[in-house]
Amino acid sequence: MKIAITTWHEGPNAGTFFQCYGLYHYLKNRNHDVTVIDYIHQPDDILNRGFMYYFTQLIPLIKNKINRNKKRKEEAILTKQFANEIRKRDERVSKFWQMILFTNRITTQADFDKLNDKFDAFIVGSDQVWNATMLNRRYFLDYVKPGKIKAAFGPSVGVGSVLPTQRKAYKTYVKDFNLVAVREKLLCDILNEELPHIKAKHLLDPSMLIPREEYLKMAKLPEGIEAGSYLLCYFAPNTKHQEEVVRKYAKEKNLRIVVMAMFGYSWTMKNDIIICPDPSEFLGLISNAAAVFTSSFHCTIFSILFHRNLFVFERKQLSKSADINQRYTEQLSTYGITHRYIPWGQSLNDEILKPIDYNHVENIFQLRLSESKKFLNQLF
């Protein structure tokens, strides 16, 4: 079967790469002809957010704009300071994207219409393509003609609450999908309330479709890093407190601190090993860490996959609708390890430090993996 995947597929973020590669790789291994649609998010394709969105979010939106402008200035300074490292990282990452077959760049309505002549089925991939605050009609496959298979596997709602206008958009654009599986239970529940006939499923992120052993073969530790000798950081904190928590733990355990630098703040952590990782280094650094401190969704699930000593920081948000913490807390809850969540401003304590029962975690993971494969196999 000729299958087209629509999802995010640009940038240096390893999580973005693996969610795309995971679905692509799995379907290819089932002998399908798979291609990723080369579409880049366009402002004109964003659905109208509605009056209530702006009315209820006015103050948070203003604060967010101020913070975003400030952050952009800081990022610009840091990007210039570490331009050489970032350039080398981006060059390495671009080689990984070459492992995936893409269409030509799709920009016009005519381009989208022609895709119907080339593919039998269309599937929306993961990441925040169904983020309630920036719903994009193209990620709802609005161009797919009747008679073609329309499916979704792993889209993320991205935020902690969904407004009535956003629920209406989901109902309007998802009603004619053949099968739907999403990343968060929040969105799964909403879809089943609004569209009970589609029987939406709450399944794995597609990055988890690739066997652990295969990822370990891809994994690479950067030069000078010894397995098990370091604590890994991958987060975007708004406060020095998280850094203090990390430093105290590293000192007590006699561990080096290795920072995977993706966000501006990471570059400011002094006396640490700062690394701009490509996807293979992302895997290597997580799988060989003595402990992982993060506020990243994909770093969280890969740490669980590799049975790491994981700690997840809460991110401070301006409003409930902008709260992305449910993406992490849901994962911890699913696997019975909510005690490894560090609330905003809190330090480590005996409860948080309780060991993770990875035998229990693995049993749950294997069950969810089986359900995820069964879902895809019944469609393709």
Rank of each mutant, 00 (worst) to 15 (best):
L332A: 07
T79S: 08
V124M: 04
T108C: 09
N104C: 06
D111Q: 14
E281K: 02
F380K: 04
N178H: 11
P222I: 05
F177H: 02
M260L: 02
L47R: 12
T133E: 07
F297R: 07
G158P: 07
K65A: 14
R315M: 08
M208R: 04
D45H: 15
Y341H: 12
I5W: 01
S372E: 05
D33C: 02
I286M: 09
H25Q: 15
D111H: 07
E281I: 00
I62E: 05
E252P: 01
K220N: 08
V159T: 15
P12C: 10
R340Y: 04
L379G: 00
D350V: 04
C188A: 09
F306P: 00
G264P: 10
A14H: 07
Q19P: 11
N254C: 07
Q378I: 07
P155R: 06
D205R: 07
E244H: 14
K217F: 04
K150P: 00
F102V: 05
L318K: 09
E281Y: 01
N67R: 14
M269P: 02
V245M: 10
S347Y: 02
P277L: 00
A236S: 13
T329C: 08
C299T: 09
M218K: 12
S280E: 06
K150C: 03
G228V: 13
I337P: 09
G50V: 13
Y234T: 06
S370Q: 14
L163T: 10
N29V: 05
S370N: 11
F102A: 05
L216Q: 12
T6K: 03
S94M: 14
S319N: 09
A236E: 04
M1F: 09
I149T: 12
L221R: 06
L61R: 11
Y173L: 02
